[in-house]
């Protein structure tokens, strides 16, 4: 509860900050729109050559691109500004000041900074999702929408956990700037339905780099082809991931030897 109140403060401060940099908001919006447009080009070209791929129609894949845009927008708003700072937290010794604060250091490092402008990508993603749903003629029930939201949330938690694990390597490697680039390139796989990949890659994208929970499963839930079993699996995996990431953080912290002393 205290953490929720604290996070609300972070958010309010970020909104105030954003109003100082209005041009930044505009360029983020423009770049986001262009990237969304370009990201959809391969999908449109692909469905120019065929009607459906493994049971996915063009409209359903467009809905999936919308979900992808929402998820990556949320990650870019709430998670990326924090995890991208990991190297400087460790090499500049900024972590010292964090450890002294009366809050969980891991909470603070994961949620402190918020890039409000990226929320514009979430908005454009919702529009694309709605467009895709209307085009495909899907009318999800309340239960299916609920399933979808729970699965997308699991996807967010899982992606955050995997990305965190990648940047926590900084405790042992010192500099992890390039690892963020690997994450961003791998997450691109979420633009496409899981079944577009060969079977071994599917397991990789479900259990190792679980982008499937962020995009494919939520859309499948909306189209009604997913049971509560997958939801349970998502929640279970998320719980395990959070647990593991807590342990990894504690292990890493033990090797931290402050930059100044």
């Amino acid at each position: 509860m205290r953490y929720l109140r604290l996070w609300r403060r972070f958010f309010a401060q970020a909104v105030v900050r954003e109003t100082h940099y209005r041009a930044h908001f505009l360029t983020t919006l423009l770049v986001g729109l262009v990237q969304l447009g370009l990201g959809i080009v391969p999908t449109l070209l692909l469905f120019g050559f065929t009607e459906e791929v493994h049971g996915w129609s063009r409209a359903e894949v467009i809905a999936l691109v919308g979900v992808y845009q929402v998820i990556t927008g949320l990650m870019a708003t709430f998670i990326a500004p924090n995890l991208n700072r990991m190297t400087s937290y460790l090499t500049e010794g900024e972590l010292d000041a964090v450890l002294l604060r009366p809050v969980s250091s891991q909470f603070y490092l994961t949620f402190r900074w918020i890039n409000v402008a990226e929320l514009s990508n979430v908005a454009s993603g919702i529009i694309v999702l709605a467009f895709g749903l209307v085009q495909s003629g899907l009318t999800p029930s309340i239960g299916q929408v609920l399933q979808s939201i729970v699965l997308a949330t699991c996807g967010l938690v899982l992606l955050t956990a995997v990305w965190s694990a990648m940047v926590y390597l900084a405790f042992w490697l010192q500099s992890v700037g390039p690892i963020g680039v690997v994450y961003l390139n791998l997450v691109e796989a979420g633009r496409y339905p899981l079944t577009f990949f060969p079977v071994p890659v599917r397991s990789f994208l479900t259990f190792v780099f679980p982008v499937a929970f962020a995009t494919t499963y939520p859309v499948q839930a909306l189209s009604g082809s997913l049971g509560w079993g997958s939801v349970a699996l998502g929640i279970g995996l998320s719980a395990i991931a959070v647990l593991l990431i807590r342990l990894l953080w504690q292990r890493g912290l033990r090797t931290y030897a402050s930059a100044s002393s």
Binding site: P42, V181, V182, A189, F196, F197, P198
Partner: peptide, 28 residues
């Protein structure tokens, strides 16, 4: 860092490769 950068560099072509091969195998 170069190794990691290059790993990122080949991710996107490989994802595209798998997608287009699937499309072909699926009769596109």
């Amino acid at each position: 860092a170069w190794v990691i950068f290059m790993l990122a560099n080949i991710c996107t072509p490989i994802i595209s490769l798998l997608i287009w091969r699937t499309a072909l195998a699926n009769g596109a």
